[in-house]
Amino acid sequence: MAVGSTAVPAALKRKHRRETARTLAFLSPWLIGFGFFFAYPLISTVYFSFMRYDGFTAPTFNGLKNWDYVFNHYPFFWQGLRNTLWLVVVMVALRVAFGLGIGLLITKLKTGVGFFRTAFYLPYLAPPVAATMAFAFLLNPGTGPVNHLLGDLGLPQPGWFTDPSWSKPALTMLAMWGIGDLMVIFMAALLDVPKEQYEAAELDGAGPWQKFRYVTYPNISPIVMFAVVTGVIQTMQYYTQAIVAGKVASGVIGGSGQQFEPGYPHGSTWTLPQMVYNLGFQRFDTGSACVAALVLFAISMAVTSLLLRRRSGFLSSED
């Protein structure tokens, strides 16, 4: 501490020491948590990424072999990266646009606001496994009600979760169904836009689009940015819906001797986090699983640093 010079009276020094002790005491649960559930496993992950370890016999040094395997030979690595990128671009963009649209819609409503708000919010509450299960049923190509309706209307009936070109769009639809969180955030931001600015724009003869472009958007753009960045981070972690949809649609969920095909159909729902599970808990190749984990870590931290830079408000404090 910079103030630790000899000129400082002993009383002040004592106070300082007391304050440090107090701070440490308040922070202690998290300091332990940080060391134990963040720093330790990270270091350990780096360590294991250079080891051959099957979780059973003692680990042996393996050099760069795991890294080489994951990047150059593991058949699902680039596919997982490509899928994750697809989801980051399409799913996040559509979710933000849709969330903003629904938020705008709510602010324009004059009747039944409470009903519509609840209706739009409700799907967000559905647990991911349950929501995915529901969609797997609704979109089941042979027997689901959605294709039944599409058939009645004479429209084409996609294979949804069983068709590699429709499985990610189906997951995107599921993500858009649970838009409640973004809707509420956008709604609050939209209501914070000063009314005077709209009135001034109206006096200048601005139409609805111009009002959105020159009044609404500049006011809510930090929130849009926030939604995009957190959306990207959430999508990096995209796991449950993808794996459950794949298992349900392929019909292979459990039972001895059955092997689940990763990312069914044709690896189209295969994402980075699933790689860690597949390598670590199905192949028991701890080293390669740690390599995959570190790739995931590097990408997540890159996105997080973007968040920290763009939203300095994250770090704001009162003094």
Partner: peptide, 9 residues
């Protein structure tokens, strides 16, 4: 963080 957790880790 690495320094904090140090040898225990």
């Amino acid at each position: 963080a690495a320094a904090v957790t140090g040898s225990a880790v």
